[in-house]
Deep mutational scan, measured.
Amino acid sequence: GQTTVQVRVPYRVVGLVVGPKGATIKRIQQQTHTYIVTPSRDKEPVFEVTGMPENVDRAREEIEMHI
């Protein structure tokens, strides 16, 4: 079944991970077949990644490449 993982990043890289108009996070979602919730600016900088476990792992690696 599907799993949801929280990926915490430093505040300063949230914009990098999301990309211009969300382009980068969309690409990560498409490439890894996951659904990613982006943290809002006034909340903790935690991305929520949902999908099959192996896909979630890949998405987390993609996010962490920006750190």
Results as ranks from 00 to 15, higher is better:
P20S: 08
G51Y: 00
H33K: 14
D42M: 12
T50I: 07
R8Y: 11
T50N: 02
V5M: 07
V5S: 03
H33V: 06
P10L: 03
T4V: 07
F47P: 00
A59I: 00
R27I: 01
I25C: 05
A23E: 12
F47M: 02
P53R: 11
M52F: 11
V14N: 00
T38F: 06
P20Q: 11
V37I: 12
I36R: 03
S40C: 09
V14L: 11
F47Y: 04
E62V: 12
E48N: 03
K21I: 06
Q30I: 02
T50W: 06
K21T: 05
M65E: 13
T4D: 04
K43T: 13
R12I: 08
Q30K: 13
K26D: 08
Q30T: 11
P45S: 08
R41Q: 10
V37A: 10
Q31F: 07
T4L: 02
Q2G: 08
V14S: 05
M52H: 06
V5D: 00
D57N: 14
T24D: 04
E54F: 01
M65W: 11
R27W: 10
T38C: 14
H66C: 14
A59F: 00
L16K: 11
P20F: 07
D57A: 15
I28F: 07
R60E: 03
K43Y: 07
E54Q: 09
V56K: 08
V7C: 02
L16Y: 10
Q29V: 03
M65G: 13
K26P: 06
E64I: 11
V18H: 07
E64H: 10
G22C: 03
V17F: 03
I36K: 03
V37Q: 12
T24R: 08
K21L: 11
E54R: 10
M52G: 05
E62Y: 10
Y35R: 15
I25T: 03
P20V: 07
F47V: 02
V37M: 12
E48K: 11
P10F: 00
E54D: 12
T4Y: 03
D57P: 04
P20H: 12
E48W: 12
T38R: 08
H66S: 09
E48F: 13
V17C: 05
I36F: 00
R58W: 06
V18C: 10
V7L: 06
V56D: 03
I67A: 15
R41Y: 10
M65L: 12
Y35S: 15
T24W: 06
E54Y: 08
V17S: 01
T4Q: 04
E64G: 05
F47G: 04
S40N: 14
A59W: 00
P39Y: 09
P45C: 07
L16D: 13
A23V: 07
H33S: 14
L16Q: 14
M65Q: 15
I67W: 15
V56E: 00
V9A: 04
L16W: 12
T50P: 00
I28W: 00
Q6M: 11
Q31R: 14
T38K: 09
V18P: 02
D57E: 15
T4I: 05
I67G: 14
V17D: 03
D57H: 07
V46Q: 05
D42Q: 12
I25D: 02
E64P: 07
Q2D: 11
I63E: 02
P53W: 01
R60G: 05
S40G: 14
R58M: 08
A59S: 01
R60L: 12
E48V: 09
R12V: 04
V13R: 10
R12G: 15
T24A: 06
V14W: 09
H66K: 13
Q29D: 09
E64F: 13
T32S: 09
E62A: 14
V7I: 14
T4C: 03
E44F: 00
T34L: 03
N55V: 02
E44S: 07
T38D: 10
T32E: 03
N55G: 10
P10Q: 02
P39I: 05
Q29C: 08
G22A: 07
H66M: 12
T24Q: 01
